[in-house]
Nucleic acid binder design. Structure first.
Lengths: 157, 157
DNA sequence: AACCGGAGCTTGATTGGTCAAGCAAATATC
DNA sequence: GATATTTGCTTGACCAATCAAGCTCCGGTT
């Protein structure tokens, strides 16, 4: 706790304040909006989409639960549950891991791959329309680096 | 992704891609991190903090459920439940609205105000440390405007 | 003045996530 | 090589949010 008792810290400047508020709003609105676009379009909730996406980017369309969870920003148990949902839809199948019998691979099925192909354009369109569009003229790379820093759990200080 | 057959839309540029990914990470990590900082510090989860905050910014420390829900980016029922949690901690009290007997006001109690005073510095510090710090040198006002546009549910197109 | 239609809020059911405990396989230690 | 520890994943209990249905009250019609 950076502020030892007593003195109140410097408040935010108006610009800082509105940035923080706007980010709060975006964090709330954006996932729902993208989700809605996709559900309306190709019935894949964002979490499930992300899982399929990450699987598809792998050479043999399979990944260990641990790794997949990390890439999807999900807890391991959250991942288990997501994969179960996908499995019951036939979009993913689970196989025991050969070199470690404790481990499982989530494997993208052909149906899953097909579904992803269907969903991909509408996801992409939503991301552009809802987000990227508003950052034309910005230095995206610089912005991306700042967000990467902010997304890294522990600031070094 | 793996770009298959037919007329597929233009994929994202690498910079766009990393911005989107980084934003995804931030949206996941940041609320949890701030929440953790605060819980460790002054036991106020972010949602409840936001509610108290908004109440405190009002001239008479009270607000109708509807309005409060909107400001907290919460559904009305979500707001009801949050206020109930706060009420059982004695930080907020509910009063029937005078000019409309259907309505309720959430009212910040003295205890609530005190608790907010305690929490405020650590919240502020967390926001700075976890977020604002990484945007030094940026044009914050411009950035805020872009986020405001992105946070407005329907893009005009 | 009795009646609707709709507004303001709460409640019930469901969802999608978390954390903690459990189980089975792997690895380290003796 | 037997036992203890650790790892990988699942399961159970819980929690905070959502939506849809319900209740109460308002206000305009007639």
């Amino acid at each position: 706790m950076p502020n030892p008792s007593g003195a109140t810290p410097q408040p935010l400047t108006p610009d800082e304040e509105s940035l923080v508020r706007a980010l709060g709003q975006v964090m709330h609105v954006l996932p729902r909006a993208i989700d809605a676009d996709m559900v309306g379009d190709r019935q894949l909730p964002l979490t499930e989409y992300t899982a399929l996406m990450n699987l598809s980017e792998t050479p043999d369309r399979r990944m260990r639960m641990n790794e997949l969870a990390a890439l999807c920003h999900l807890s391991l148990s959250g991942m288990t549950r997501t994969i179960i949902r996908l499995e019951t839809q036939g979009l993913v199948r689970r196989e025991r891991c050969e070199e470690d019998a404790r481990g499982w691979n989530a494997v993208l099925t052909d149906a899953g791959y097909a579904r992803l192909q269907e969903s991909w354009p509408s996801h992409l369109a939503a991301v552009r329309r809802r987000f990227l569009q508003h950052f034309e003229g910005f230095d995206l790379a610089q912005l991306a680096r700042a967000f990467q820093r902010a997304g890294t759990a522990e600031p070094a200080d």
